[in-house]
Amino acid sequence: MTDATHHLSSPRNTATKTFRIPIWSDANWIVRIALLIGLILVVTALTAPWLAPFDPNAQSLISRLRPPIGFDRYKDGFYFGTDELGRDIFSRCIYGLRLTFALALAGAVIGLLIGGTLGLMAGIIGGMFEEIVMGLVDAQIAIPFTLIALLILAAMGSSLDVMILVLGVYGWEQYTRIVRGEVKKLIQMPFVEAARAAGATPARIAVRHILPNVVSPIVVQFTLNFSNIVILESTLSFLGLGVQPPTATLGSMVGIGRDYLPTAPWIVLAPAMVILLLTFAVQILGDWLRDKADVRLRSR
């Protein structure tokens, strides 16, 4: 779950890097595929209410567990088959994607904001504050996250808001480590010292000189975190702690449906494929952005 490269790699003697958004022509074919998949998924998520042929929660107890198109007992119009309550899996996948996407995005952004801010402050302020923040980071790393999620959900009840909070807490410590590490390195660099000598405030230094330098590792961490949150959400559903049924998320569909893998595998395989595509696209894009943003590789 951790990509520690940035935390631990030796300080680089590079000047300020500017982050450049790469474009289509820079991409190789795998990245292009990932871009396409990503685009399709985003559009699907945004237009779910128009795309989905059925209400994702509408049950039909007489047509439970019908297989997808092309198999015996296929029920017309239910392309991916029906689930254990006769709901349309295709529609549930679409709505599930929409909600999962939103949850993962919200979770990753919240984590970034909390973790990034703490890291930046710890790096710049230092002293006792830094000690406390890093103590919390160490504590967070040492406590399995499932337990934290479980306790938060138990104490606050399992609503969508709480779920976003739980997913948002996930991974904050990684951002803090990364940002603080970069800040500590940069703060001793000649150009930062020069700025400080010239009378720049810490806030200005943070915004002008430090932020641009941490964008690249943060983007990578963000994509990693996004995928991890998607998986985490399914793990929570496996444990019975996920988003409350009947609401469809990709995670709850695989987590609750897993008992049907031997008998009605489509219930799980369809949403699992969507999860795979989603995380895969995000990972490839993240890695590509990282390579593109890396000065050393670009110069070669």
């Binding site: 995928s227 496996f238 995670g251």
Partner: peptide, 15 residues
């Protein structure tokens, strides 16, 4: 190689 490696991130381990 990286695509294969990423699959590890992409599917819940219980699946």
């Amino acid at each position: 190689v990286m695509v294969i490696a990423f699959l590890g991130y992409a599917v819940p381990s219980f699946i």
